[in-house]
Design a protein around this nucleic acid. Structure first.
Lengths: 385, 385
DNA sequence: CCGAGTTTGTTAGGCAGCCTGCCTAACTTA
DNA sequence: TAAGTTAGGCAGGCTGCCTAACAAACTCGG
């Protein structure tokens, strides 16, 4: 019937294994890892080698038995990239196909407004690619993190206030036009959740939420390894929660109530000399009663977000992240407040810090690359989705 | 290596197809539905027939071409059951393996307390089985709906207040001991969500939430066809939400704030003659200002639950269900209030009414039966999980 | 230095589970 | 009665994996 050009199914499994583990592997190791027989893996590797997707990189001796040939993925097979577009910093990483960063650059966001931020981000990526010596190599996927609502059915990104854009903007097309490879655009907190799952605090949890508290607030929810995007890509937009605090003040739904912007505003109303929320936390730690009171209020707001997330999705773990959230003082207090919930989650700090979104962006890029690489090389004439 | 007794893989696919569609099918139809060639399906059917899992039930002629033999599943192959344990009503259905109810019984819950409610429910199931003439036939799965928090890692069911049980109770073991087949215990609103997905208002949505407002309130969330249970089975326990209303009154988290119990209490404070919330809604519809005000408050509370669910998981559709929720007046008002949300969902009434949980219980039972039937028949000596 | 032990690399043979292709059988319609 | 259509069934073949067996190449202990 619909006969797909399947090639050798085992080749796809072996390639995936070759890409997921960083560093070269012997064919016997691959056979064990893929639960395939050695002859099958040998044939698959021969095929991959002829397609330019695998190559012998070294010999391993010293152990009893015959020396084994170690295989890796040639640099020419491609590379992937991660880009993190933030309100204060831009990051770009160029990685090999297993996701190991070759070059990672960070720069403060000079630009305001979607168009110029995109321009600056693309420049940074190009720079990273040059530094990594991967200019002639195909970019198989670029994961891009953006602080806004990314709707899977609509190219327009909404609520990207943090990069100075208050109108819906077609980030996807702009990035795709400027980058010579498939662009995977995703919300920054969602990517932080993916990052924490792959290499961080959410590795063992069947379900966890990341709450990022930086300039604004947002949450990312993972369920059995899959991201909960929501029908319009707005899952985890906890700024839209009708919290008790919001009601008390008469504002029906104040988006950045728990974010750093609002906190700083409040702090400056108290003492205009304050320029940074970090100072506020330091003063609170030293016992300044006004600072303690503001920080306590902030912890209450975050605990209400935790409570709402627990009531709706009941995560095992809640990971606090972002410039404000990833903070011992705050995490401990939020954990105390949350322990009063009917079914309290485990509260931990981010394991990846401010690199979480970038790590997640790289992870989605490697996944995409691994899924499409073989098909792309096997049928170079067909249209690539 | 780990060679599983796979038998004929195609047989499993064909059997699943045979079970998912109610009514007999020809082998050619099965071949198309399973995307297999006719010879393969013929072989699979021969195998299934020899195992007693399929039998020719009729001949179909009238169409051009040779008369086809229609195959079905013999009654002796087994049956499944659905049980809905509620605070006011008990339901039990005995169905064939494709989930078509043969007998469905409903009885008001006389019993109070977990143990006696379980006893009454099991009695009803036995009665239904006798009426359906399926006593000697193996019960391959019984889906049981319970208004409480069912933790997948703990047999204890919590918060089953609606059946008069305020202590954690091991419903699973009690039901398993009394029922001669695998018991699949699940929260009632979660099952309502599964029901709405299979045969109701959530059939096309990638993500939707069911909010059931009866004696209490609860929500069930489906995401790409899978139920969001939560780490402790407490996803959708929106009674635990820290709503603005709760805060206004100074109660930190009042569990049944939006439920019918609370609403009736308020209504009776106004007019002790009221015995039923339906009367309250009727009065509101006729314009009684006190009733309108109470109903309006109720709609606000529900809208806040909708807002919280949307902020956290962003569903495409919200289905209102339960004795109070499944109501035109309320649904319309909640839809109006929710249209002001940043990303408003579609609000609809339940398509299954008060049978939603039962339909969901039957659906989980048929799924379980379809997944385990072949293995069970192929290896009758091995232990069945 | 040499054999024993161990692991890699390779070849041959086989089997499960599908497929396509091609019949024959049996029915409806004109 | 002939043509068209669909079901039933057989033969042969292909894919993708397996096991078994052996040769090659290394380490290690004597």
């Amino acid at each position: 019937m619909n006969r797909v050009v399947s090639g050798t199914p085992s080749a796809s499994v072996v390639l995936t294994q070759l890409l997921t583990v960083a560093g070269p592997q012997t064919r016997s190791e691959l056979a064990v890892a893929c639960a395939l027989s050695r002859p099958t893996v040998f044939a698959a590797m021969e095929r991959l080698e002829s397609l330019g997707l695998a190559e012998p990189v070294a010999q391993r001796s010293g152990l009893p038995g015959r020396t084994a040939t170690l295989y890796g993925v040639p640099a020419a097979a491609g590379c992937v990239a991660g880009v993190d577009i933030g309100g204060t910093n831009l990051r770009a990483a160029v990685c090999d196909l297993s996701g190991t960063p070759l070059v990672e650059l960070k720069r403060s966001t000079r630009a305001r407004g979607a168009a110029s931020v995109v321009r600056q981000a693309v420049e940074l990526l190009v720079e990273a690619r040059v530094a990594a010596d991967r200019v002639g190599v195909p970019l198989l996927a670029a994961g891009v993190s953006i602080p806004g609502v990314v709707n899977p059915h609509d190219p327009m990104v909404r609520y990207a206030w943090n990069v100075g854009e208050d109108q819906p903007y077609d980030f996807y097309s702009q990035l795709s036009d400027a980058i010579d490879g498939p662009v995977l655009l995703e919300n920054n907190v969602n990517l932080a959740a993916i990052g924490e799952q792959r290499h961080g605090a959410g590795a063992d949890a069947s379900m966890f939420a990341v709450i990022a508290i930086g300039t604004g607030v947002g949450a990312g929810i993972m369920h059995n390894g899959v991201l909960l995007r929501g029908a319009h890509g707005a899952a985890g937009e906890v700024a839209f929660l009708p919290t008790g605090h919001a009601h008390r003040r008469g504002t029906p739904s104040s988006a950045d109530e728990a974010g750093g912007k609002a906190l700083l505003r409040e702090a400056q109303a108290l003492d205009p000399a304050l320029t940074d929320v970090a100072e506020l936390f330091e003063r609170a730690r030293l016992g300044d009663p006004a600072a303690v009171s503001l920080v306590e209020d902030e912890c209450r707001r975050i605990s209400e977000i935790v409570a709402a997330i627990c009531a709706v999705v009941d995560p095992e773990t809640v990971i606090l992240s972002g410039g404000i959230g990833d903070n011992d003082f705050l995490a401990q207090r939020v954990a105390e407040l949350s322990s009063a919930l009917p079914i309290p989650p485990t509260i931990v700090r981010s394991a990846l810090g401010d690199r979480a979104s970038l790590v997640g962006a790289i992870a989605t890029a490697t996944t995409h690359a691994a899924e499409h690489l073989l098909a792309r090389v096997e049928a170079p004439d067909s249209v690539t989705g």
